[in-house]
Design a protein around this nucleic acid. Sequence first.
DNA 1: ATAATTTACTTGGTATACCTAGTAAATGCT
DNA 2: AGCATTTACTAGGTATACCAAGTAAATTAT
Lengths: 178, 178
Amino acid sequence: MASPTPLPLDPIAEAKRQWIAHGWADSADAMAAYSSVMRAHQLMYSRVDAVLKPLGLSYARLELLRLLSFTRGGALPMASASARLQVHPTSVTSVVDRLEKDGMVRREAHPTDGRATLVVLSDLGRVLVEKATTVLNEEVFASPGIPAEELRTMTSILARFRRDCGDFTDPAPTPDPL
Amino acid sequence: MASPTPLPLDPIAEAKRQWIAHGWADSADAMAAYSSVMRAHQLMYSRVDAVLKPLGLSYARLELLRLLSFTRGGALPMASASARLQVHPTSVTSVVDRLEKDGMVRREAHPTDGRATLVVLSDLGRVLVEKATTVLNEEVFASPGIPAEELRTMTSILARFRRDCGDFTDPAPTPDPL
DNA sequence: ATAATTTACTTGGTATACCTAGTAAATGCT
DNA sequence: AGCATTTACTAGGTATACCAAGTAAATTAT
């Protein structure tokens, strides 16, 4: 949701000023950075969702479909999907519920593990994930609103952050000039 | 929610490889950057929420309380709060509903505009926003997980992005060396 | 002054995220 | 073998975001 009525001043820069004025100068940069990510997320999410909406998809739904499409057989246990997407197991349940209702995936029993449920990509799902990826690349990622150089800078900064938060154990997210 | 079981490889770097392998190299950097922001948002949000939870607050609730605390009189029409926080009016309604139920704010009639409702910070709300800010600064922003230099780099990159998305009209979010 | 429009907010519904608690199947221990 | 533990998933509830539609007050136009 881009602002219908732009504010005159950058609200995050304003908040940072307030932070410093209140004697919290030490935390001001972190507060500003966190707020920036929060807001950028909202803007990116709504850009992506607007493009996916005509296809009956959303970011969360596409993430799951894409994961399946990259998997041999287009099937994955729920738990694996939860781990790979780094979302709560119950979130996978509810996304799969709706995708199944729309015929984009189906549940199947796991052949050997009676506890597990497989999510299987349907033909419709496979068509849609292809289409969605194309549209997303053309409509959003081709003109992301951030220069290429800065995209890479940001990805690299956030990769280190994600690693330090325990997302992955990969030694070097981006080769660092040392 | 940090991963309970860290993945061996950076999933976003993996996705980028897939992108390039599928012939979408042109969009790979943007895809990676967008995905990074999405995931970083999730990590930051859960860090912040974990710290605020004991106080009965959340990021969204604190944002509103903080906005009120920075306002003379601690009161603001709903519509102004919506604009300043850059969230949907109905989101403000529901956050205020819950904050009011918990005694942190109250609704009052606007003195001159019969359509408008004022949200007013209560004494309890004022105490909590002070406490929450202190705790947040100490527990999260003092060690944000990202070096100071990179915090500023990221804030600056995202400021330009937010401005280009129409968030504000401020000419120079960060003084740009030209 | 009256009618039309705009603005402000609420209600009800959807989507996504989380948590807690529960069931069922597989595994491990004795 | 049989019981306890672990693992996998579902169900129900909360929080937050959105949109669409509705009501009521203020503003604008005639």
